[in-house]
């Protein structure tokens, strides 16, 4: 019985990660990709923002699949948070530079 509830909890955590976490990850990527595109691919700012937003879906999609493949639900959450933070860091660093 206890394992059953644990399983349910894990499933809920994963679903939440897939919905909320993946969207947040996509959102973070739409910010974080802008400095990357500008500095590494010499894009104009308008192009970079446009492309970053278009590509964000791909990141979101990867996140959804990833969340369901990770061994433990909390690991999935941890990785999503790491991903989000690193993209946002790039965004802030890029904004300063």
């Amino acid at each position: 019985m206890r394992s059953f509830t644990h399983q349910q909890l894990s499933l809920t955590a994963r679903c939440l990660a897939a919905i909320v976490g993946a969207y947040c990850f996509a959102l973070a990527s739409s910010f974080g990709m802008v400095p990357i595109l500008i500095n590494m691919f010499d894009s104009l700012k308008a192009d970079a923002v446009y492309f970053a937003t278009l590509y964000s879906y791909i990141f979101g999609f990867i996140a959804i699949i990833y969340v369901f493949c990770r061994r433990k639900a909390w690991l999935a959450w941890r990785d999503i948070i790491i991903g989000c933070t690193s993209f946002m860091t790039i965004h802030f660093v890029g904004a300063i530079g």
């Binding site: 996509a26 959102l27 739409s30 910010f31 802008v34 700012k45 308008a46 192009d47 923002v49 446009y50 970053a52 937003t53 278009l54 964000s56 879906y57």
Partner: peptide, 27 residues
């Protein structure tokens, strides 16, 4: 992609004052 400015507007809104409208005009 068609409704990108509704589903993922945050970056555009952050970088441009008028959001997707201004960005669209630019590109």
């Amino acid at each position: 992609f068609i409704y990108i400015s509704m589903y993922m507007p945050w970056s555009m809104d952050h970088h441009y004052e008028k959001g997707s409208r201004e960005l669209n005009a630019l590109v």
